[in-house]
Design a protein around this nucleic acid. Sequence first.
RNA 1: GUGAGUGUAGCUCAGUUGGUUAGAGUAUCAGGUUGUGGCCCUGAGGGUCGUGGGUUCGAUCCCCAUCACUCACCCCA
Length: 416
Amino acid sequence: MIKAITGTKDILPLDVRYWKYLESIVDNVFSKFNYKEIRTPIFEETVLFARGIGEETDIVSKEMYTFVDRGGTSLTLRPEGTAPVVRSFIENSLGRQKTLNKLYYMGAMFRQERPQAGRQRQFHQFGGEAMGSKSPLLDAEMIQIAYDILKSLGLKDLTVKINSLGEKESRENYKNLLREYLAPKKDRLSEDSRRRFDTNILRIFDSKIDVDQELLKDAPLLLNHIDDESKEYFEIVKNVLSKANIPYEVDPALVRGLDYYTRTTFEIISGKVGSQSALCGGGRYDLLIEELGGDPTPGVGFAAGIERILLACTNENSINLPDEAVDIYIVKVTKDINKEAFNIASDLRRKGLAVEMDYNDRSVKAQMREANKENAKYVMFLGGDEFAEDKTKLKNMQNGEENTIPLNELNKFLKI
RNA sequence: GUGAGUGUAGCUCAGUUGGUUAGAGUAUCAGGUUGUGGCCCUGAGGGUCGUGGGUUCGAUCCCCAUCACUCACCCCA
């Protein structure tokens, strides 16, 4: 049997309903904040991600689906959405048509990781990007959009974590400070953290190992070593969030894995989805656009994992969708009226009703059972003496009421 | 990439301390009863017991390998 690729999943019809519901809320919230949807290709030149996300990150160094096409170009299935949006922003000169561009996207992303709860190789994100302003209001706005979407989906077990990484220079100074602090303790760190010491020392704070956390107990915190301007900026972000009634926690250990973040970073985590608890994450990236070849333009954005969010919704039982139902199920009492039944169905469908009928010449009983399963509001019986007189019998499946009516009065009866 | 756990009907799972035709519930299909559905009743189809090898007179069961899935590490959304 041919099976779906490891780490990919079919979204079956029953689930699609929840996806569409989520998508409608995403559209709705973003448009209230005047963000416009953008759709970029699912693959890009590999260099875009290597330069945008950072060569040293795990995503680029070992998780990308990269291949060479027949023309010899190295292509990569997008592992995240920000770099492609920035590429499009630069390529289409969006920044020259408008000072501030507010964009959002939804779509599939690809990373070759070991799947587990809340983690797949093909997964889906939605996200927002605001390019062209350094205002801390936009940092807060991003968090608010993400928070509002999650709240609209009925989620309760949420924690908003925020932090500031400061400007690049103060962060580099801090890294040296941390390196000095940890150097004498390096051999006591866990194997993973010893590796991080060299590759991405800030991430040691993420370690879930007690020994590491113990060694970090008196370590200097980045938040205390960021530049003054970033400190003031962070105060404004916090202030605005408080006024918008968004509960948040400052988490000095919140370090994000992508290289391009400056100043504000944030995550919203759920207590209901297992160990991969981050439903969304983002932050400011004031240098990224320039690094990718655009005019120097500040930006801020976030991305959210749709599968994780829906997992949280399932586990919190936060979404209740009505059962899908057809308006009319046509039951053929005799088997010789397939064409007539199909014509009547077509006619009703064109008038806007959802109509289903039997295509397999099954018994009346089987057709009725089917009508019941499809939650049909009405069953229309076709055939026999009634049909010979151009009449049909309509049965209301909720209350069992039946009415025999002439076919040419159907519209009137159904009020269409 | 590392570790642990699990692979028996479409789904959820029993089971054989190694021994003829491998079971249940549910789902599917047909039929009975109900004025033509929901409840109830009867019956049917559906499994090379993940795959390959080994041990054995005999393996779904024991051993090895492999693959897949799940969870966790890692990483991130």
